[in-house]
Amino acid sequence: MAVSTAGYAVVSDRRGQVAVARARRAAGRGLVTLARSVLIFVPVFLVATFATFALRAISGLSPAQIQLGESATPEAVARIEQEWGLDRPFLAQYWTWFENILHGDLGASWANGADIATLIGNGLSISLSVATAALIIGIVGGFALGALAALRRTTWIDRAITGFTTIISVTPPFVVGIVLVSIFAVGLGWFPSAGYVPASAGAWPWLSHVLLPALALSFDTVADVARQLRAGLIAAYQENYVIGAVVRGLSPRRIFFRHVLRNGTGPALAVLGLKFPMLIGSSVVTEWIFGLQGFGRFANDAAQAGDVPAVQGVLVISIVLVVTFNLIVNIILARVTPASQRGL
């Protein structure tokens, strides 16, 4: 009796040790993935910020043109450039600017001296709501269509889905946006055609303003995720372990969720990481169509006004967003399909 309880204790203790060791290994793997991804993205960030900063020097624009107009005396121009620290050596300017970015300070706008980080922060909440909604629609829609097409492959459902994804993949977001506006906002009057209401004003008013732009942005993602998932799942279905599972008599549902889905999602997830820059880029156009005062609109306005620090701030923020999103995708990818780590 005593012996057997001791035996149980030993067994459960060993089980606990195994579980702890496994968890530790998983955590270690996660950290290694994170470290590797960060190592890749640090040079990316350095090069990208440098290219961004060099834009001012290449463009030859100066705050004096915005503040004083064309007919400024050279002395006044020199005085203003000195105020903004533009007479210092290029690399010294870059270093100060870079240090400020690391502290979250994006500098002041040339046009009105306002703090750029605050300006971008105002628009970012709008753009991120739209982009997140678009991502959710893209992932849900893409996975549903892709999985359905793969499960019913070579039937009319598969062909209909493939045709649909082909059509929506060649439709630029702004065309989708115009079509949506003319049907649902102007034609049927179900949704407001422009503007934004913060989520604090209620869930439905917020959603009704976000849904159409998000839909317009999501089409491209839906198409790409669906196509990659379909190809990935069909490839996974032809693997020997699936045949083995069928032979062992496992249910189709279990085979799909345990064996095929996990191994077939890799390409779709990888594509998702590449889609995020597209989402940010397309937001410039969709926000214009839907009259949203977001990040993309701010980028457009600042660029057309020649407000270089504001444009640089926008570009830095978009780089940070893209890099962060890719880090997340890499970590998920490493969890789902460990083999993908070899590619890093």
Binding site: V44, I280, V284, V285, G296, A299, A303, V311, V314, V322
Partner: peptide, 11 residues
């Protein structure tokens, strides 16, 4: 690859 090219083109 990480740069959103439409934003860059606009800028």
């Amino acid at each position: 690859v990480a740069l959103p090219f439409l934003v860059y083109a606009v800028a």
